[in-house]
Nucleic acid binder design. Sequence first.
DNA 1: GAAAGAAGTGAACCATCATTCACAGCTTCC
DNA 2: GGAAGCTGTGAATGATGGTTCACTTCTTTC
Lengths: 202, 202
Amino acid sequence: MAYRKTPAEIHRLTAAREHLVGCATEVVAEVGWSQASVTAVADAAGIAAGSVYQHFPSKAALAVEVFRRAAGREVEVLGEVLHGPGDPVERLARGVEVFARRALENRGLAHALLAAPAEPAVGAERLAFRRRYRALFAEVVREGVATGALPAQNGEITAAALTGAIGEVLVDPLGAPEDADTEALLADLTATALRCAGAPLA
Amino acid sequence: MAYRKTPAEIHRLTAAREHLVGCATEVVAEVGWSQASVTAVADAAGIAAGSVYQHFPSKAALAVEVFRRAAGREVEVLGEVLHGPGDPVERLARGVEVFARRALENRGLAHALLAAPAEPAVGAERLAFRRRYRALFAEVVREGVATGALPAQNGEITAAALTGAIGEVLVDPLGAPEDADTEALLADLTATALRCAGAPLA
DNA sequence: GAAAGAAGTGAACCATCATTCACAGCTTCC
DNA sequence: GGAAGCTGTGAATGATGGTTCACTTCTTTC
């Protein structure tokens, strides 16, 4: 009598879940959290509203999953660059540039992750991820201070400042449809970030 | 038959409106925008929920008024410091310090103005005010570049970075009930801001 | 002091959505 | 092939909270 899921069925279910998360991410990137109703997301995924609850216990849980997936990718990429080869200042510069470039290449999503108004659960997640960005930056800053490439400073504060500065500089461009000169923006942002950490001018 | 408001009555009305705005500000500072329902605000002001609509056409209009009043004061104070006496770098340092100190002295309100989730109308207002902060900072940075006290840079970008950096550095302390060492935080934040603008170390 | 008009009240109204649930359609198992 | 159990459906449900409105209370005017 016991009913056991066949591998194919399991695969179908997880695929459906992945598809739902993917579609939800697209909807959020396009219209923001506030407009991403359960109905809108379900429609985008081609399922009924009620079916969302086969995969997630609540809308908030789905939203958190969407956020974690997308933000997790960014943390990972940033971490790889910051832990990669090169001296601390170089890595910091590349980290900022890569982060900003990826945001500008995927504006809708970046805006949703960084700035768009969201329900409390997502807000909490945003805070948590900001701490992770901060921790990554703080590490590199402390390294730079240790090697003497950067002046003595409170690495945590500098890291928080970097996180905030990057977000704020990007907010306007993220809202605009197309930026006139992305490269110039990236150069200016990177330069500002380096100054913020006290790196000598190139 | 024409009914004309007596001066005393006009005064009473505007006083009631002021009182409402003041109470709403307190409520928002204490519980945030999301918890500040019309009923809660009306209760705090000692009036009925319906009476709110004698003074404002909608809850959003009241919220915007609350935001503008409070944020306007900060812009004004910051502007006075940044336009005050002293060389650009000194003024920048004092501006950052004064801004942060005021925020830390009135944490609830500062958090509501800078970071707390809010309805779209308030979000738009927040963006507008961030542009004003940015414009103020940009002015001083450009001055500093002109006098040679600061290295060549894109003043707008630096100003945006300063705005974001200050906000981000303050977010955590604003959430905490009481900070261990406010003065150390202020010193670190100011130092970071100066580095961000490229000012030589003190 | 009485009529007329404005402000104040708060319970009812209404719109919006997340969530549920009775039912239909498939899959598994024997 | 048929019973049992799981997934999918989408209209109904329910909670929330801003807004309205018939009514009361206060103010002005003559």
